[in-house]
Design a protein around this nucleic acid. Structure first.
Lengths: 261, 261
DNA sequence: AACTGATTTCCATTATTTGGAACCAATTTA
DNA sequence: TAAATTGGTTCCAAATAATGGAAATCAGTT
């Protein structure tokens, strides 16, 4: 009668709670969570207990609030090293950032959203997790469109359904049709642009990372602000961007884990 | 009769599986996990299913292997921002790294282990193995000892129980007594050293981050290699290290989250 | 085609989760 | 000072979901 989301069992529900806490981005108290979720009081309470003493959440007794726990940071380290392109791509990002002197982003798709897995700052050094883990919509970012454009139709349509199509700026696509048109041209040119679609004043040029020229596994972008560059300036990076994306693709496809015989 | 580890229910078990996969640091196949865990085949299988379609694990159908999933990276981002010292400490790390030109590490204690939450590279491109999310033993690292020394007795003893006391190098403490002796002197001097106890050739000087001169919330270290510096050289950093640790402590205690009205 | 080892599914039994309601503690209101 | 309100925690019988032995399926080999 009521299976609105096909949860997988207790674990699924617990993770739902975890997500909720994480999504709020600040410590939350029990009552607030109770309002936001639709778990009964006792159940929610038990989930929080369990998650907390598993280290997935941390609890501050002083102001009785929950926040995501450090165990997640530990786990994410493995995830980042194994399941993301970041470790393989790292040297190429270094080189690209050095060459162009602008911010460089590496992203992958996760549940229809863009997940940044690494970046290089425009000027100098990088912060690891500061950028890694950040999410953004895919319909209005360079990397997002680059990935969407090169996905097989079936998963792409699924991903398109998940887009919120909020109009962040005047330039943001707010219809699925408009986006699909652009994706077609992205597919032809092999490059996507962010024309201040997510944040006013921020533009980027992005290329998909294609393994065997076919399977898209992520995207790479050079981003800057309109105060430093015009969109037309970015087009000059097309070639170096495509080259780097290709290098990363090669490195990624070559680098297989020793599957322990 | 058999509750060797007081698991919290299904969620606990699932997380145990997640940890197992993460700890291996490479994609693993079903059978290997079956050997390593002591779950019955069908149960393990279901856990993997659940975790996978929750995005906590990723599954590679090609070689039938499991790895930690990207959802963790997403979740960890919130955890890192909210529950770690990293965001507040960031500018101070920048300044310190710039001033001393050596690798700087910021760490916190998690279940008795040192968890690195941020770092800055030294000028020399010696990439110490530590990145955000990386864990290390606390009994043989500068940051670990700095934290342990300043913890209240009760949790410290608990943490000490959790130490493996593996003898990584000739200098590693391998008895709880030896470590306790050193912690006493660390407490007096306000500073801890790593004298090649974890990795041969790597030394560090570390200071605890103490809120209100009392509660230790993490530690800060300057690390280098014996090929560049002697231990005595590091002592010169004592003062700047303590100052920075203090600044971070102040920033951390001041910065309270808006607890929502 | 038969064999082998790994992976996946089945299903009756069992153990765990569930959630309404009672309870407790601290703070606010009368 | 007492009563009421709010926020958090515990109980326990009923409902549900997890369990795991065994059997079926699948992918390589010989």
């Amino acid at each position: 009668m009521n299976k609105p989301v096909p949860n997988d069992g207790t674990v699924g529900k617990a993770l739902q709670v975890l997500d909720l806490v994480a999504s709020l981005g600040r410590p939350v108290r029990f009552t607030e969570l109770l309002r936001l979720s639709d778990f009964p009081k006792a159940s929610l309470y038990r989930f929080l207990q369990t998650l907390t003493n598993q280290g997935m959440l941390s609890y501050d007794p002083k102001n009785q609030s929950y926040a995501p726990g450090l165990r997640l940071v530990r786990l994410a380290h493995s995830a980042w090293r194994q399941s993301s392109l970041a470790p393989v791509a790292s040297p190429y990002l270094d080189a690209l950032a050095k060459e162009v002197g602008e911010a460089v982003h590496l992203a992958q798709l996760d549940h229809g959203h863009v997940l940044f897995v690494d970046k290089r700052k425009g000027t100098g050094n990088f912060d690891t997790l500061a950028a890694a883990g950040k999410v953004a919509p895919s319909y209005c970012t360079g990397v997002g469109k680059a990935i969407l454009a090169f996905m097989p139709a079936a998963p792409r349509n699924l991903a398109l359904q998940q887009q919120a199509f909020l109009k962040y700026t005047p330039a943001t696509h707010d219809t699925i049709g408009g986006l699909e048109n652009e994706l077609r041209s992205v597919r032809q040119e092999g490059i996507a642009f962010d024309r201040e679609e997510h944040e006013t004043g921020i533009i980027s040029i992005a290329a998909p990372i294609l393994i065997d020229q076919k399977t898209v596994v992520g995207a790479l972008s050079i981003a800057t602000s309109t105060s430093r560059h015009k969109l037309s300036d970015l087009k000059a990076y097309r070639s170096v961007l495509l080259t780097t994306a290709n290098q990363i693709a090669n490195a990624a496809s070559t680098w297989q884990f020793p599957t322990q015989n």
